[in-house]
Amino acid sequence: MKKKIIFLILVILSLFMCFPVIFLIAGSFMGKAELTGHLAPVLGKGKDFVSWGLLPKYPTIRSYVELLLDTPQFFVMFWNSVKIVFLSIAGQLVVGIAAAWGFARYNFRFKKILFTLYIVVMLMPFQVTMLSSYLVLDSFKMLDTHWSIILPAIFSTFSIFIMYRFFCNIPEAIIESARIDGASELKIFFKIGIPLGMPGIMSAVILQFLELWNLIEQPLTFLKDKSLWPLSIYLPNITLENADIAFTASAVTLIAAIIVFFAGQSYLEQGIAASAVKE
């Protein structure tokens, strides 16, 4: 009986947490008139209380057709997001895997101090490093280019931290056996380290995808040209005139994140568990 009560409570809490997504999906299938009736007290001059229905009264896909077939700006920003995310994650894999392997498997001078600095940098919010990043990017003439977003993301310390935990869990006996058999350090890295650390690598990729796909502050700070903006800041100002497109654009943007999340859910759970293990 106790388990059933706990299960019921968890189901209710889950539905409550999923309500914003249900709210969004339902709004994306509502017509402009129905959305106006619901949102007028917030976005218009209405004086009544806000109301909302979990299911649209008159469902329509008109806003989807308008967004996907008659809004070129949306596709420009979509491909901006794809470019930023793909290049950032590719760079993180090149830099981060090697760095995480070095920290996990080799002893060198000032290793603990350097790794501690990595953790400190990881814990710093963007607001702390914004000014210094702006000055550095300005000196390299990278402001108002996608590289102002991509380059800092390539050297993200968070992905290194996640992969480091998995590389540490590789048994030392396997590494030593490979060395006794005459394998070079490079061969050990590619033939043993990367295959056995693949769950950590994939979890880092998924976490970084979710972060980069939803970037807001960095594009607003470093990109003045709106044609370079990613999809995450599409239609930042919602009005009654564009509410239907805003809901639909948000729903379409959410689809990519949902697909990646469910495709790599098991890896994500392993990454979170590994990052919580105390060294």
Score class of each variant (00 low, 15 high):
259 I>G: 12
279 E>I: 10
155 F>W: 07
15 L>C: 13
266 S>H: 14
27 G>H: 06
76 V>F: 04
52 W>G: 15
131 L>V: 10
220 L>A: 03
208 Q>T: 03
147 W>M: 14
112 K>C: 09
172 E>W: 07
188 I>S: 00
91 G>I: 01
128 V>R: 02
229 W>M: 07
34 E>I: 05
78 F>L: 15
256 A>K: 01
120 V>S: 09
17 M>D: 04
35 L>S: 10
136 V>S: 07
143 L>Y: 01
123 L>K: 00
207 L>S: 02
34 E>K: 06
141 K>E: 09
66 E>V: 01
230 P>C: 01
188 I>Q: 00
148 S>F: 00
218 Q>G: 04
18 C>R: 06
198 M>H: 10
151 L>S: 06
147 W>V: 07
234 Y>W: 12
243 A>H: 12
105 R>F: 09
241 E>P: 02
265 Q>A: 12
43 L>K: 10
102 G>W: 00
25 I>R: 04
191 K>A: 14
207 L>P: 01
20 P>R: 03
31 G>F: 12
220 L>G: 02
209 F>G: 11
153 A>I: 03
152 P>I: 00
131 L>D: 01
1 M>T: 06
227 S>D: 09
163 M>C: 03
161 F>C: 11
113 I>C: 10
188 I>W: 00
219 P>Q: 12
97 I>L: 09
38 H>K: 15
81 S>Q: 03
216 I>D: 11
7 F>S: 10
97 I>K: 01
200 G>I: 00
140 F>Q: 02
168 C>P: 06
272 I>H: 00
252 V>T: 04
94 V>P: 00
191 K>H: 13
109 R>I: 11
81 S>N: 06
184 S>D: 14
54 L>Y: 13
58 Y>D: 15
203 S>N: 08
1 M>E: 06
105 R>I: 07
35 L>Q: 12
75 F>K: 11
115 F>N: 05
163 M>A: 02
228 L>I: 01
243 A>L: 13
216 I>V: 15
117 L>M: 14
20 P>L: 05
64 Y>N: 08
101 W>K: 04
275 S>L: 15
50 V>Q: 12
15 L>W: 09
125 P>C: 05
243 A>G: 13
36 T>E: 14
1 M>N: 07
268 L>S: 03
226 K>L: 03
43 L>F: 15
236 P>C: 06
270 Q>D: 15
46 G>V: 14
265 Q>E: 13
185 E>L: 09
88 S>C: 08
100 A>Q: 06
240 L>K: 02
182 G>F: 10
260 V>Y: 03
179 R>T: 12
268 L>W: 02
119 I>L: 15
123 L>I: 04
232 S>Q: 03
200 G>D: 04
24 L>G: 07
14 S>E: 09
130 M>V: 10
127 Q>W: 02
24 L>H: 06
159 S>D: 04
246 A>C: 09
162 I>C: 08
274 A>F: 09
208 Q>R: 03
135 L>M: 07
11 V>T: 13
166 F>E: 01
88 S>P: 09
259 I>F: 13
34 E>H: 08
132 S>M: 10
104 A>Y: 06
80 N>L: 05
211 E>L: 10
28 S>L: 05
144 D>T: 03
203 S>Y: 05
75 F>D: 11
217 E>K: 08
118 Y>Q: 12
232 S>H: 01
239 T>L: 10
186 L>R: 08
46 G>C: 14
